[in-house]
Design a protein around this nucleic acid. Sequence first.
DNA 1: TGTACCGTTCTGTTTTTTGCAACGCTCGTC
DNA 2: GACGAGCGTTGCAAAAAACAGAACGGTACA
Lengths: 305, 305
Amino acid sequence: MSLQYLRVFAYIDEVARSGSIRKAAEKLFISASALDRRVQDLEAELGTPLFERHARGMRLTAAGELFLHHVRAQRADFERIHGEIEHLKGMRRGTVAIAASQALAFSVLPELIDRFRRANPGITFKVLICDRQAVVTALRAFEADLGLVYSVQPASDLAVVMEVEQRLCAVMAAGHPLAARDAVRMRDCLQYPLAMPDPNLGARALLEAFFARSSLKPNVVLESNSFEMLRNFVRTNDAVSFQIQVGTPLQYNQDGVTARVIEERAFPRQPLTVAQLKGRHLPQPAVRFLAALREEMQSRGTVVT
Amino acid sequence: MSLQYLRVFAYIDEVARSGSIRKAAEKLFISASALDRRVQDLEAELGTPLFERHARGMRLTAAGELFLHHVRAQRADFERIHGEIEHLKGMRRGTVAIAASQALAFSVLPELIDRFRRANPGITFKVLICDRQAVVTALRAFEADLGLVYSVQPASDLAVVMEVEQRLCAVMAAGHPLAARDAVRMRDCLQYPLAMPDPNLGARALLEAFFARSSLKPNVVLESNSFEMLRNFVRTNDAVSFQIQVGTPLQYNQDGVTARVIEERAFPRQPLTVAQLKGRHLPQPAVRFLAALREEMQSRGTVVT
DNA sequence: TGTACCGTTCTGTTTTTTGCAACGCTCGTC
DNA sequence: GACGAGCGTTGCAAAAAACAGAACGGTACA
């Protein structure tokens, strides 16, 4: 649903996204000339150019940035109101849009969403799995209601609605010698080849911080931006990988892979944080899902905020 | 400035205000039929009627209430963004809309606004003086950015941004016997005829609360909803009136009227509160004015919040 | 120096919005 | 109980806005 009367707002949004009138026009199924006129008319009404014209396309001006944010906020808020009107009509429909780190794609989110949908049928989900920078981008563009990230850089336009204390886990094959032990220390892991998450995965920052002030030398045989890749790798050999607690199969061995919490006294800790765009009204379904998420996390570990 | 593309939103807003298509059409300078079609088209797009049709006119449905609030929020937020864009262009323009109780109309607001405008030329003000119920209404309808009220009933959609502890004052002629004293007690006032603020003025609630648990019997000779009326009345006789501190000329005798703080140990107190609509982004000028207001109040009395 | 892509303008066409007159309806009143 | 005043609503033609397609002028990159 996009409401005929907000057409021009959608135009501006798309032009900013595509960075070009012609590309935007194609996506909007109108001609470039028509789109161009709408942009120019709006600029005339505002008395300010919203875009800088370059040979390669259009870039937002400062005023454009401001206005675009307003446009996206309005479009998102309209969707929320529309959802609440549907709710009044008795239709329990709605969508929750989530942007999350990879770690949550493995078990937490799928299971939680499945359970939530059984209790609240009619509510649909959009889940975007991406790195933590893209999570913030999605929140800012009103493409996600909630962002779930490990080690997010604080930003003044984001509000942290929940923080869950997370410990680091070593991930290994079920038959791995370390799997036989209850407690695993970091120096135990370093006896084996390591499959490391790459720098734009949250867990990496923690590991770097540890190695920086340690004399232990890691033997990295694989580095990847995919937890799935790392997990599948360690299944068939004696390598050890790392992941944050919430993303690991602790209690049950799944697909021949298991995990153990790393017991390390002075290990740097970083919480898993749930964030939203500051000052935004979340749609009702997102509010309810957040409550379910909080309940889930409280039963699982330490919820800080 | 109202932006061509939000035309239909203005239509809905006006229809809700006027309660009738024909009256709204007249104010909007279009025909009733054209307006009617826009309303119907919008309802069709939303899949829900926004208005109930009666022989006397249109009344909002539940969905209509919801949507109207969104419309007004959107229009107000657009004004804010437009102001910030003007700000980018170097034009320091903007408007601060205030809804306030009568008590503030006497000296605080006029003086503060005057001073503020000297420091920030180009910023204009809209001040609506009304009873505290209308203040809340104006905030809800996005007609006011800030509401200044004495004894506001708490509401879930209002956010209190500031509270100033207020004491009650006795107001009397400059030559009144009580004016010769430094400290005035309630029972001193009751020696004289009283000019009482009427029930929908904030100060009245306090007085009622006091009399309810006191054996003193007030001799009320005048009751009015206008502080100006009360003040002018006591000037020429020995009657005593009441007003909250912020609205009274304490230090200087103005127009032959003066005031003294009432010293009463267990007197009920109610703060003057500054409120805004919860979850709303205030325009930049309003934010700056609020800061000036806070500074002023801090120099004048006890700011609680 | 060409070529590919960009935003833009000009033309006429299509779609949307509007005004006007008329209709059906519900109220309050004579 | 008829009647007028007010209301929302509907057809139809006119006006206005948005549109597509071809052509123009420019910049960037090979």
